[in-house]
Design a protein around this nucleic acid. Structure first.
Lengths: 181, 181
DNA sequence: TCAGGCGTTGACCGATCGGTCAGATAGGGC
DNA sequence: GCCCTATCTGACCGATCGGTCAACGCCTGA
């Protein structure tokens, strides 16, 4: 029985991921998810406290890796931090591109939600590290283009093999980045 | 009287732009816009047929310029098309960054709406032109990162002076792009 | 002076949202 | 055979959405 519960839990999670990826978080209703699973909306809410809990659980692994990257960047300094940030973020984006895709540009709003409040601060530090010269506006602009662009792109090119996507992005980042002198 | 009507029309438009920029299109209700203007929701709908009409009118100038860019790219060929696409898009993004900002990542859904159907095709051609080698996956990935990243960035850095943003983006694009041989 | 229409309003509509709840069902332990 | 509980359901809730509508005041041209 316990196994059956876990199965249903995961089934709902997978269905939600599929729907979120197509119509986004806000654009997907609990009814949509229930229909995809083949059960009632009430059943979905029996397995999850509320809609946000589904999203939170779906994003948990990606957030964990993001936090680990944040700590790794903090542990380095100077040019090393820039390299760690660049490679770390590309890896993360490629690996979790399905999770990124399901946010479909709803980042700004979702980041406001308390559950994701700390993500914003991590993003800030990531941009600083990637910029190399955080005080130079052009460096920050470059970093922002890369972060936002890579996120969006990974959400779009879900069918390209991991290694191909990864190497293309890394090559682009190396070309685009102004090195720390 | 006719002037008063036009004034109110523009006032509603400006209020909608302000609200959209903060909470996005979907996240802004007609009630929100009416409150910002200081009138009733019904009054807003007296001046505009529906909510979508407000967005359409708000985006019209940007879409016109995008279409003009599309035609200019089509009129060129080879390496020239890549340069035209790059410079044209950066100019467009910087100039209309407030309009871009108010979409707040709702592009994917909005592009589905019939009013913006052709924008998707224009974007495809823009990516091809920017990629230079549209058949090479890495070139398309690079182009996508730049387009998506620049859009997002322009929506974010609304306070940076036009020329500073423009030159930083152009420099980045030149570094990032693989030239057509 | 008065009829007509423009701009505006609040009340209302149906649809949909996330979420609640009491009760039906079924299956395993006693 | 009986009960208990985990699972699930349909009916329902209040809130909010975009949009409609009859009616009202006011301005204007005849």
């Amino acid at each position: 029985m316990a196994r059956a519960v876990a199965e249903k839990h995961d089934e709902i999670l997978a269905a939600a991921a599929r729907r979120f990826a197509v119509t986004g978080y806000r654009g997907t209703s609990l009814q949509d998810i229930a229909r995809e699973v083949g059960c009632s909306k009430a059943a979905v809410l029996y397995h999850f406290a509320n809609k946000e809990a589904i999203l939170t659980e779906l994003m948990a692994p990606a957030i964990e890796v993001l936090q680990a990257l944040d700590e790794r960047i903090a542990a380095h300094a100077g040019a090393d931090a820039q390299r760690v940030a660049a490679e770390g973020f590309v890896d993360l984006a490629v690996r979790f591109r399905r999770e990124i895709a399901l946010l479909r540009g709803e980042f700004p709003e979702l980041l406001q939600q308390p559950a994701f409040a700390h993500i914003q601060r991590i993003s800030e530090r990531l941009i600083d590290a990637l910029a190399g010269h955080p005080e130079r506006a052009s460096a920050r602009i470059t970093a922002f283009v890369l972060l936002a662009g890579i996120s969006e792109t990974c959400g779009e090119f879900v069918d390209v093999p991991d290694e191909e996507l990864r190497s293309a992005l890394l090559a682009l980042v190396r070309r685009a980045l102004e090195p720390v002198d």
